[in-house]
């Protein structure tokens, strides 16, 4: 087996005030793949990324990027990685081109080469028109693209993307996904964190689910989905009372737990379409007609419910 591009072993980190952000996180990322780290806010994803990018020192455990220890050889690691995050860390007072040229010079390109590389990236990220405007005037999506471009100035073999689409509108999100997919095509190893199951599913070859500073599940996206993510049938019953009656009918006769969110009854589909037919037949027999029906993929909330017994919002 080739050495891992990123390897974390039993990473631990406790912040001042006793907040235990990581309590022993281990994983390995194969070269040239996209690795997804999925978890709710505060799960420890950003802390893990900050340790792997040498910004933070772990309290316990160790980590390597392309065989270089992040604590013992931080300089080498920094020369091998790119980091783009949810904050879109660019200087608002500079123009897009000035930002990229500055990063280029800081990664030791000569001024002319830094300018050339900046123009290349601006074109690649469709920012050429806005290149001479200060970043203050950019939209959220443009800032995010510039931030990603800044992470790529040095053509790093390993790229860290910390929640690259959080806060973007659906259009911006889809565009960002396409960009990330194109990057992976040229052999870059990517570690990305996300709160969205859909995003991890679309982009990541290999996944860990992280909660309260621990890895609680790992595998490929389809393995995880098979393990946890049954499709869910949502039945809109029109009112809370009717929904409650439907719960009783389905709970008794379908033989599996249904849950209720206001007037919507939710049923996990163990056996696919047959469950839908069965549920509708039972309701029809009981004289209860749903006013709406949706079959949806499990959300992160459902995954967490299945894995931890709590949703993403509870502590």
């Amino acid at each position: 087996m080739p050495p891992a591009a990123i390897e974390a072993r039993d990473l631990e980190k406790t912040f001042k005030g006793g907040v235990r952000a990581l309590t022993g996180v281990s994983f390995a990322v194969e070269p040239g793949t996209v690795f997804g780290m999925l978890g709710p806010n505060g799960a420890g994803k950003t802390t893990a990324v900050r340790i792997l990018t040498t910004i933070l020192r772990p309290d316990g455990g160790s980590a390597e990027v392309l065989g270089h220890d992040v604590v013992k050889e931080p300089g080498v690691v920094r020369a091998l990685i790119g980091l783009a995050g949810q904050y879109a860390a660019v200087d608002e007072n500079l123009t897009g081109r000035e930002n990229l040229r500055m990063i280029g010079q800081l990664t030791q390109l000569r001024r002319v080469d830094a300018s050339r590389r900046a123009d290349e990236l601006l074109a690649q990220f469709e920012l050429t028109e806005a290149a001479g405007r200060s970043v203050k005037t950019y939209s959220g999506g443009m800032r995010r693209r510039l931030d990603l471009a800044a992470a790529l100035v040095d053509r790093p073999p390993v790229l860290f993307l910390d929640e690259p689409t959080t806060g973007l509108d659906p259009y911006g999100r889809v565009a960002m996904w396409a960009t990330i997919e194109a990057l992976v095509g040229d052999g870059t190893t990517v570690l990305l964190t996300t709160q969205y199951l859909e995003e991890a599913d679309r982009l990541a070859d290999q996944l860990v689910v992280i909660d309260h500073g621990k890895v609680i599940a790992e595998g490929t996206s389809s393995e995880l989905k098979a393990q946890l993510g049954k499709s869910v049938l949502d039945l809109e019953m029109g009112s809370d009372e009717i929904a409650e009656k439907a719960m009783v009918v389905l709970g008794n006769q379908l033989g599996r737990p249904a849950t209720r969110q206001a007037s919507v009854v939710e049923i996990p589909l163990d056996e696919g379409p047959r469950d839908v037919i069965e549920a509708l037949r039972l309701l029809d027999d009981a004289g209860l007609a749903p006013t709406g029906l949706t079959v949806r993929e499990p959300s992160l909330d459902d995954v967490f419910l299945a894995l931890t017994g709590h949703g993403t919002t509870e502590p």
């Binding site: 900050r50 990018t53 040498t54 910004i55 300089g75 920094r78 020369a79 990685i81 980091l83 995050g85 904050y87 879109a88 860390a89 660019v90 200087d91 608002e92 990063i103 800081l106 990664t107 030791q108 800044a150 040095d154």
Partner: peptide, 17 residues
Amino acid sequence: QKGLIERFRSLPMARSG
């Protein structure tokens, strides 16, 4: 606040820069 320092700290540049 804007995360720029984080970016600089992840770059292969002098710590005093």
